[in-house]
């Protein structure tokens, strides 16, 4: 389990913003994952971190991971030159329940580095667009310069079968878009709450207020799904760090329904 996988090769690295890079990794064999799952990436000699897969689940020979440079390991990964071998274990964890969302509206809400773990679900929903009613993407970042995947966002905004709303906490002089927090976007879009399903990833505070806004609109608790974060070291439900109440997030999560989480995420320091 610890050392029985062949290394992957970094085929291409693409800078998304000042602190965020997408690594295109080539697995030794075609790699199958579900949207929302993550891999453990190993920067040689420095350490291992859990990183969500950010690419298209239909693409099995180049697996994308979008990484924000915030610590020793993510810094090393972001600075890795193409051609280098990288240790990869996975995929781990639960996935976005796209089947649950079929037949109704799908609302996808992302804050900051929360967009990459949702992008595979967006690709999947667009691939099977006829299975859903409205498809809505709400996305926020701190500043316009922190927005990820801007080219793709522009293309998605041009589609008639996808609603995209973007906001920033702080604009700059060239910004003509929304300024404000992500939960406020819920009130700006049209959807059918009774049949809607929501997927979200972002800072816990953003998710708490987004959940509140969705529930106020009438979305049922068991159709709101969150991807949670805790310290994660083994990804095998052994090391105990990723506990969130009764859940081991590497095994039971990261994606859980608000119904499962309600008791726990209303508490401080859980």
């Amino acid at each position: 389990m610890w050392a029985d996988t062949e290394p992957w090769r970094l085929a291409a690295a693409r800078r998304e913003s000042a602190d965020t890079v997408t690594l295109g990794l080539e697995p030794p064999a075609p790699f199958v994952f579900d949207p929302g799952q993550f891999n453990m990436l190993y920067a040689a000699g420095i350490g291992e971190v859990p990183i969500s897969i950010s690419g298209d689940p239909g693409q099995r020979t180049r697996i994308l991971h979008t990484i924000r440079d915030v610590g020793a390991v993510t810094h090393a990964l972001c600075a890795t030159p193409p051609g280098t071998e990288i240790g990869v274990r996975g995929p781990y964890g639960s996935h976005w329940p796209l089947h649950t969302a079929e037949g109704g509206d799908l609302i996808i809400v992302a804050g900051g580095i929360g967009l990459p773990p949702l992008r595979p679900a967006i690709y999947q929903a667009l691939r099977h667009r006829d299975r859903y009613q409205r498809l809505v993407l709400l996305y926020g970042a701190r500043t316009p310069r922190d927005l990820l995947f801007t080219g793709e966002l522009a293309r998605w905004r041009g589609r008639f079968d996808l609603t995209v709303e973007v906001t920033v906490d702080v604009g700059d002089r060239d910004w003509r878009g929304n300024v404000g927090v992500v939960p406020d976007l819920i009130g700006r879009v049209t959807f059918e709450p009774g049949t809607a399903t929501a997927f979200m990833v972002g800072p816990e505070i953003m998710m708490r207020f987004t959940v509140r806004a969705l529930l106020e609109r009438g979305v049922p608790e068991d159709r709101v799904f969150l991807s949670m974060e805790r310290n994660m070291q083994c990804a095998a439900a052994l090391c105990g760090h990723c506990q969130l109440g009764p859940f081991l997030l590497c095994r039971d999560g990261p994606v859980l329904s608000y119904r499962q989480l309600a008791r726990w995420i209303s508490l401080r320091e859980i």
Binding site: W2, A3, Y42, A44, G45, I46, G47, E48, Q233, C234, L238, C239, G240, H241
Partner: peptide, 21 residues
Amino acid sequence: CFCFSVEDVTDLAGRAAERNR
């Protein structure tokens, strides 16, 4: 109690690496 931490270490030259718990 079963919690363990995982730490990666290398030699000074960065040639040999190991993972400890």
